[in-house]
């Protein structure tokens, strides 16, 4: 991490669906974390744990049920006029999981990329055209591609178009929601390398949501693990792999198959059973800092155990 300037502060964020009804779903249940400028924060967990909802709520695709998202100190979810929201979203962009569904099939690639530029009135006419060409070349496509339609491209190329669209308004912060999980292995590395390169050149900050843990470890500075709407562990990526403390993190790490037959033969999978915690009534559960910058969601008693088991 290069500095400790907070770009984004997420405070007690809650996102409930069907609130107050019998089928209420607490997709995101009171989570707090910060994202520092220039870093990549990975968010992992299995499907339905609320990681995508967290990303979408941060960028206000959903209105939060409770809590705050502070972008450079300003609340994204506060009372805002349309133009205020527009100003805000210029600095935050999103790359979606499915490159087949996230591009409008009836628009040319040039128009898709320039849509943000048009909405924010950043440039017009020839200048706009040049900007589109620039962006296409930045992501490794040709300027001739601007007049084509999405169906003419492969999955990896479409994901590049999605990245170009996100970059068009020169954001500071990009939420990448499983940007590579729909792509083939040989293409995944291309897109990841592109994201890394852009981060270096433009000083971008990423929230990288994924379930492929080996890729997340590779791309992220810090990783947050989510389970049933809660953030259960947050640490630097090396530390998380070296010292997984929460039993769910341990179970998740033990489940990833690695491309190494020898380690696979000796693999012991750990299953997670939430009853191991055996929390008593009245125990306060919250994120506690077990080691510097290593947070675990636990009770006071577990906190002591975790501290004891932490390997430096």
């Amino acid at each position: 991490m290069t500095n400790n300037e907070k770009l984004l502060e997420i405070k007690n964020l809650k996102q409930y669906f069907n609130k107050g009804k019998s089928n209420e779903v607490r997709a995101v249940d009171d989570i707090s974390f910060d994202i520092y400028k220039g870093e990549t924060l990975g968010l992992v967990g299995e499907s339905g744990c609320g990681k995508s909802t967290t990303g979408r709520t941060i960028i206000r695709l959903y209105n939060a049920t409770g809590g705050q998202v502070l972008y450079k100190g300003e609340d994204v979810h506060g009372k805002k006029s349309r133009s205020d929201i527009k100003d805000m979203t210029r600095h935050m962009q999103m790359i979606f999981q499915d490159p087949y569904a996230s591009l409008n099939p009836r628009m040319t690639v040039g128009d898709i990329i320039a849509e943000g530029i048009d909405i924010h009135g950043l440039s017009k006419g020839k200048e706009r055209q040049e900007r589109v060409f620039d962006l296409l070349e930045t992501v490794g496509l040709n300027r001739e591609h601007a007049s084509r339609y999405p169906h003419e491209f492969s999955g990896g190329q479409r994901q590049r178009i999605g990245i170009a669209r996100a970059l068009a308004v020169e954001p500071d912060f990009i939420i990448a929601d499983e940007p590579i999980s729909a792509l083939d292995v040989s293409i995944q590395a291309q897109v990841v390398n592109l994201l890394q390169k852009l981060q270096k050149e433009k000083g971008l900050t990423y929230l990288f949501i994924a379930h492929d843990l080996s890729m997340v470890k590779y791309i992220s500075d810090r990783i947050g693990v989510m389970y049933f709407g809660k953030l259960v562990e947050l640490a630097s990526s090396d530390d998380l792999y070296k010292n997984p403390l929460h039993p769910y993190t341990k179970s998740l790490l033990s489940a990833i198959p690695l491309p190494d037959p020898e380690s696979e033969r000796t693999r012991r999978r750990v299953a997670y059973n939430p009853s191991v915690h055996n929390y008593q009534d009245g125990e306060e559960l919250k994120m506690r800092e077990v080691a510097p910058n290593h947070f675990v969601y636990c009770s006071e008693k577990e906190f002591k155990e975790y501290q004891a088991s932490y390997v430096k």
Binding site: S154, S186, I187, A189, V192, N193, Q196, S214, K217, Y218
Partner: peptide
């Protein structure tokens, strides 16, 4: 080789660039 090199292992650090197979 390309397939094996394009996957990060858990000890690949972020300074080493993944070797992507170019093209389609």
């Amino acid at each position: 080789w390309g397939l094996l090199a394009s996957m990060p292992s858990l000890d690949t650090d972020e300074q080493t660039e993944l070797i992507a197979i170019p093209g389609t």
